[in-house]
Each structure stands twice: as structure tokens, then as C-alpha cells.
Lab assay of single mutants.
Amino acid sequence: TGEEYIAVGDFTAQQVGDLTFKKGEILLVIEKKPDGWWIAKDAKGNEGLVPRTYLEPYS
């Protein structure tokens, strides 16, 4: 389980392990790392690192 967040901007993977997403996408945050990069999963089940500055809590 995780917390749902909504993307407030588009993000394109910079390196292997990053997750590309579009503004408005709902992501499930699995782990919040202290460096500001969180592990998240998208609706298709893809998992990767995302920058927390692009996310806001979804309710």
C-alpha cells in the first residue's frame, strides 16, 4: 500500500530507474526517501523514482 499523489507537472526520466509521468497523473508513493526522490508506481504498474517537488497529495 501507499499514498496517492497527483503530478503537478510533466517529468521525463533523466536516468535508468526514474519514472516518466504527465501532469494530472495519479501516482502511488511507496517509499519517501530523504533525498527528495520518492519511489512511486503509476496506473500501469510501472515503478520508479520521482521528484517529490512534482507531486501533491491527492484526496
Rank of each mutant, 00 (worst) to 15 (best):
Leu19Arg: 01
Pro34Ile: 08
Tyr5Lys: 01
Ala40Arg: 00
Leu28Arg: 11
Pro51Leu: 15
Val50Cys: 03
Thr20Tyr: 04
Pro57Gly: 05
Trp37Asp: 04
Glu4Val: 08
Gly17Lys: 06
Thr12Ala: 10
Glu25Val: 06
Ile6Ser: 03
Thr1Asp: 13
Arg52Met: 12
Lys33Met: 06
Val29Cys: 03
Lys32Ala: 05
Gly2Cys: 05
Leu55Ala: 01
Val8Ala: 08
Ile39Leu: 15
Tyr5Met: 06
Tyr58Asp: 04
Lys23Tyr: 07
Lys44Ile: 11
Leu49Phe: 08
Ala13Arg: 07
Ser59Glu: 09
Phe21Ser: 01
Ile39Lys: 10
Ile30Gln: 06
Ile6His: 04
Thr1Ile: 12
Glu31Ser: 14
Pro51Gln: 10
Leu19Val: 03
Thr20Lys: 05
Phe21Asp: 00
Phe21Ala: 03
Gly36Met: 07
Thr20Leu: 03
Ile6Ala: 05
Lys32Ser: 04
Lys23Leu: 08
Gly24Arg: 03
Tyr5Glu: 00
Pro34Asp: 14
Ile26Gly: 02
Ile30Lys: 09
Thr12Ile: 12
Lys32Cys: 03
Trp38Gly: 01
Asp42Met: 02
Lys32Arg: 09
Thr20Cys: 05
Ile39His: 08
Gln14Asn: 11
Gly9His: 15
Lys22Gly: 08
Gly17Pro: 04
Glu4Ser: 13
Trp37His: 08
Asp18Lys: 10
Ile6Val: 14
Lys33Pro: 06
Asn46Ser: 10
Trp38Val: 03
Gly24His: 06
Leu28Val: 10
Ala40Asp: 00
Thr12Gly: 06
Phe11Gln: 03
Pro57Cys: 05
Glu4His: 11
Lys23Thr: 10
Thr12Phe: 13
Gly2Ser: 10
Gln14Ser: 09
Asp42Phe: 01
Gly36Ser: 06
Leu55Lys: 01
Phe11Lys: 04
Ile30Glu: 02
Gly45Leu: 05
Leu19Met: 09
Trp38Tyr: 07
Leu49Trp: 08
Ala13Thr: 05
Ile26Phe: 06
Ala40Trp: 01
Val29Thr: 02
Lys22Cys: 06
Leu27His: 00
Gly9Phe: 15
Thr20Asn: 13
Thr53Ala: 09
Thr1Gln: 15
Asp35Trp: 05
Gln15Glu: 12
Ala13Phe: 03
Leu19Asp: 00
Glu56Gly: 06
Asn46Leu: 11
Asn46Pro: 01
Val16Gln: 08
Asp42Gln: 03
Tyr58Met: 10
Glu56Gln: 10
Ile6Tyr: 06
Leu49Asn: 12
Ser59His: 11
Gln15Phe: 09
Asp42Glu: 02
Gly48Arg: 01
Glu31Asn: 10
Arg52Asn: 11
Ser59Thr: 15
Thr53Arg: 11
Ala7Val: 03
Thr12Asn: 11
Val16Ile: 09
Gln14Ala: 09
Gly36Phe: 06
Tyr54Val: 09
Lys33Ala: 08
Ile6Arg: 11
Leu49Met: 08
Glu25Thr: 08
Tyr5Leu: 02
Tyr54Gln: 09
Lys32Trp: 07
Glu3Ser: 12
Glu25Phe: 04
Lys32Asp: 03
Asp42Ser: 08
Gln15Arg: 14
Lys22Val: 14
Glu25Lys: 02
Asp10Ala: 07
Trp37Leu: 13
Leu49Ile: 15
Gly24Ser: 04
Pro57Met: 07
Pro57Glu: 09
Glu3Trp: 12
Ala7Lys: 00
Ile39Asn: 09
Glu31Leu: 09
Val8Thr: 11
Lys41Ser: 08
Gln14Phe: 07
Lys33Tyr: 10
Asp35Lys: 05
Ala7Glu: 00
Arg52Lys: 15
Val8Leu: 10
Glu4Gln: 10
Leu19Tyr: 01
Gly24Ile: 01
Leu55Ser: 00
Glu56Asn: 08
Gln14His: 08
Gly36Lys: 04
Thr12Leu: 09
Glu3Leu: 06
Asn46Cys: 05
Thr12Ser: 13
Thr20Val: 04
Asn46Ile: 10
Ala13Ile: 03
Thr1His: 14
Leu27Tyr: 02
Ile26Asp: 01
Ala13Asp: 03
Gln15Gly: 15
Ser59Cys: 05
Glu47Phe: 14
Tyr5Asp: 00
Val8Gln: 08
Leu49Gly: 08
Asp18Ala: 08
Trp37Ala: 06
Gln14Gly: 11
Pro51Ile: 06
Lys44Met: 11
Tyr5Thr: 01
Ala13Lys: 06
Gly9Asn: 15
Phe11Tyr: 14
Asp10Lys: 03
Glu56Met: 15
Thr53Ser: 14
Glu31Ile: 11
Ala7Asn: 00
Tyr5Phe: 09
Lys44Gly: 15
Trp37Asn: 07
Lys33His: 11
Asn46Asp: 09
Leu55Cys: 02
Asp10Val: 03
Ser59Asn: 12
Gly17Trp: 08
Pro57Arg: 08
Leu27Asn: 00
Gln15His: 13
Leu27Gln: 00
Gly2Asp: 12
Phe11Thr: 02
Arg52Thr: 11
Lys22Phe: 13
Glu47Arg: 10
Glu47Lys: 15
Val50Leu: 03
Val50Trp: 00
Leu49Glu: 05
Tyr58Phe: 08
Leu55Asn: 00
Lys41Glu: 05
Glu31Val: 12
Ala43Gln: 12
Glu3Gly: 08
Phe21Leu: 05
Glu56Phe: 10
Trp38Ile: 02
Lys41Trp: 07
Asp35Thr: 08
Asp10Cys: 04
Asp35Phe: 07
Tyr54Phe: 11
Glu4Gly: 05
Lys22Thr: 11
Ile6Gln: 08
Pro34Ser: 12
Val8Trp: 05
Lys32Tyr: 07
Ala43Ser: 15
Trp37Ser: 09
Leu27Phe: 07
Pro57Leu: 15
Gly9Val: 14
Glu25His: 10
Ala13Asn: 04
Gly24Val: 01
Leu28Met: 12
Ile30Met: 12
Trp37Val: 08
Gly48His: 02
Pro51His: 12
Lys32Gln: 07
Ser59Met: 12
Lys33Thr: 13
Lys22Ala: 14
Lys22Ile: 13
Lys41Thr: 07
Asp35Cys: 05
Gly48Thr: 01
Pro34Thr: 14
Thr53Tyr: 12
Asp35His: 07
Lys41Gln: 06
Ala7Tyr: 02
Asp10Asn: 12
Leu55Trp: 01
Lys41His: 09
Trp37Lys: 10
Glu47Trp: 14
Asp42Gly: 03
Lys23Ala: 08
Asp10Met: 03
Arg52Ala: 15
Phe21Asn: 01
Glu4Tyr: 13
Leu19Ala: 01
Lys23Ile: 10
Tyr54Leu: 11
Gln15Pro: 03
Thr20Ile: 04
Tyr5Cys: 02
Gly2Phe: 11
Lys23His: 08
Gln15Ile: 08
Val8Ile: 14
Asp35Met: 05
Thr20Arg: 04
Thr53Asp: 15
Tyr5Val: 03
Asp42Lys: 05
Tyr54Trp: 09
Gly36Thr: 04
Val50Ser: 02
Gly17Asp: 05
Arg52Trp: 14
Gln15Met: 14
Gly48Asp: 00
Arg52Phe: 15
Ala43Cys: 04
Asn46His: 10
Trp37Met: 12
Tyr58His: 10
Pro51Thr: 04
Ile30Tyr: 09
Phe21Val: 10
Leu55Gln: 00
Lys41Asn: 06
Lys32Asn: 03
Gly48Asn: 01
Ile39Glu: 03
Leu49His: 12
Ile6Glu: 04
Gly36Trp: 04
Ile26Ser: 03
Lys41Ala: 06
Gly45Val: 01
Asp42His: 03
Gly48Ser: 01
Arg52His: 10
Pro34Lys: 12
Lys22Trp: 08
Phe21Lys: 00
Glu25Gly: 04
Lys33Leu: 10
Gly45Ser: 05
Gly24Trp: 06
Phe11Pro: 01
Pro34Glu: 15
Ala7Gln: 01
Asp35Ile: 04
Trp38Arg: 01
Phe11Gly: 02
Tyr54Pro: 02
Gly24Pro: 01
Trp38Leu: 03
Ala43Thr: 14
Lys22Asp: 04
Leu55Thr: 01
Gly36Asp: 09
Gln15Ser: 14
Thr53Leu: 10
Asp10Pro: 06
Lys22Gln: 13
Lys32Pro: 04
Glu25Gln: 12
Gly2Ala: 13
Glu47Leu: 15
Glu31Gly: 09
Asp42Asn: 09
Gly36Ile: 05
Tyr58Gly: 06
Ala43Tyr: 07
Gly2Lys: 11
Tyr54Ile: 09
Gln14Pro: 07
Lys22Tyr: 10
Leu19Asn: 01
Lys22Pro: 02
Gln14Tyr: 06
Lys44Cys: 05
Gln14Val: 12
Leu55Met: 06
Glu56Ala: 08
Asp35Val: 04
Gly45Asp: 06
Gly45Arg: 04
Pro51Val: 04
Gly45Tyr: 04
Lys23Trp: 06
Glu56Pro: 01
Gly24Tyr: 10
Asp10Gln: 05
